[in-house]
Design a protein around this nucleic acid. Sequence first.
DNA 1: TAGGTACGTGACCAAGTAGCAATACGTCGA
DNA 2: TCGACGTATTGCTACTTGGTCACGTACCTA
Lengths: 120, 120
Amino acid sequence: MAEDQNRELSDAALALIAERFKVLAEPMRLRILHTLGGGELGVSEIIAAVGGLQANISKQLGVLLQAGLVRRRKQGLRVFYRVADATFFELCQLVCSSLHERLAAQVEEIESAVALRKGA
Amino acid sequence: MAEDQNRELSDAALALIAERFKVLAEPMRLRILHTLGGGELGVSEIIAAVGGLQANISKQLGVLLQAGLVRRRKQGLRVFYRVADATFFELCQLVCSSLHERLAAQVEEIESAVALRKGA
DNA sequence: TAGGTACGTGACCAAGTAGCAATACGTCGA
DNA sequence: TCGACGTATTGCTACTTGGTCACGTACCTA
């Protein structure tokens, strides 16, 4: 039973982790977060920075807010957002370095293949 | 123009990062990777460990392989997979700690609300 | 060569969702 | 009170994809 519980807990944890990754799996949301990396911004500024229609930006901001990745602050007509979870930047950096390694390896592979063709 | 190039490059990079996150945004794939954390395993063992139909596991392994997250090795009839990108575990750990913080904050919020009710 | 085993693939369906257009909501100045 | 403005929401469409079934492929043994 303890085993079952562990399995259940592990599954629940994996589901939560997957959900977090899902939120980050959209270029537009990444652009918004990246833009907010410079500090708190109003919705209008975000729209100007990342492009796209207001409705969509608002929707994606809602997704990020519900995921706890950004915080919201109202001031009169304006609404300001800022990054609430700094791990986002670490995650991006990790993925970037991983992708960089992978691409470098592919380049090397291709180059060695070219060298083989030259030799033949 | 340099600005445009930077913007284009940044968009392409964000698309790549989003794609990586997308691969990790599925509980079944996370389960497979987590299972492979113990070391190289054959497809049959993976299926036994994570559950589900063989066709689906094979499909998800294909996705992971194409993403460069796992490596493949054939030996007779058997096919063995192993984790190819160790950053996966760091990513999971980061997300886990982030989620833990978030949940702890929510618990605290709820408890203080309960305390307020008691006080009233 | 025939048959069995381990794994991959193609076709399909159902669920989820990004983007868009239209509209609603809340807040301010006049 | 009435627009005007900034933002959120709703309904919709098109597309993607996880899971499943049926079948194909590669490899081994007898």
